[in-house]
Nucleic acid binder design. Structure first.
Lengths: 132, 132
DNA sequence: AACACTATGTAATAATATAACATTTACATG
DNA sequence: CATGTAAATGTTATATTATTACATAGTGTT
């Protein structure tokens, strides 16, 4: 078990907001929501986001420029991430599938490259949108 | 075999540029490079990029906001993409691995979601950078 | 020619992200 | 407890990426 990271004031404010959100949040929407708590500038948000991503408390959904809290309590580092994204309602959820993560973490090809990290985004229609 | 898509003037100019580039190109770098050919505005670039992505001639590297030509001549639609990205030299290459693409295209989890598309980005150090 | 569809041109602006610099806080160690 | 150092904060300005809105032009039917 790795030691628990202590969050700074801004990091905590921003993490709490993202963690409570049912959907991925964008940086400027975060900014708008924390202005009443004294966080006034984009850079303050981006710095906290960078740190939170680094320590694995949140993940960035690259295709959406948005951030969600890590669903997986044991996840300490964002080095192996997979998401499913509904292209209709934009619902995003983190995929926790041991087989998949093992398969990808062990993936090697002929390029001689050593992979230390990956990010996978699946797109489609969620159950709800599919049945419409 | 699907029918060959005919590119329009702007699409061809922009595809040719990306196709010749040894590295992923960013939208505004593309814009700068095609201004002498009469493409003056960002929107003209983004429209061509959107179309080229749609028909699978290029792919967007989401984590880099950059575009590369498809390496795989048979690729008609960007619905199953995988890339390896060197975090040191930023070299990007498309991974064409049948096992991997089969594995991911057939992936299903318990969410009930039907996946029609995925994008995978691997990060690490390329052979060259690793040996430095 | 009339129609539908795709592509183009242009200006303005929105949304996302970083640079540069000054200051403050947390906390380990002498 | 003073001092050093790393991390975090505050602030202004600016860079980078992407879209809205509207007008016009080309292309291929029927």
């Amino acid at each position: 078990m790795q030691k628990q990271q202590t969050l700074s004031r801004n990091q905590k404010i921003i993490f709490d907001l993202i963690d409570k959100s049912p959907e991925p949040m964008k940086a400027y929407s975060i900014l708008f929501n924390v202005q009443k708590k004294g966080i006034k500038a984009p850079l303050q948000v981006y710095r906290a986001l960078d740190k939170l991503v680094e320590i694995g408390k949140i993940h960035k959904i690259e295709s959406r420029n948005a951030f969600i809290a890590c669903q997986n309590s044991s996840c300490q580092i964002s080095k192996a991430t997979a998401f499913s994204i509904c292209e209709s309602c934009e619902n995003v959820s983190e995929i926790s599938n041991t087989k998949l993560s093992k398969y990808l973490s062990n993936f090697a090809d002929s390029s001689g490259m050593k992979y230390s990290k990956y990010n996978l985004e699946f797109f489609g229609l969620c159950k709800k949108c599919k049945s419409k």
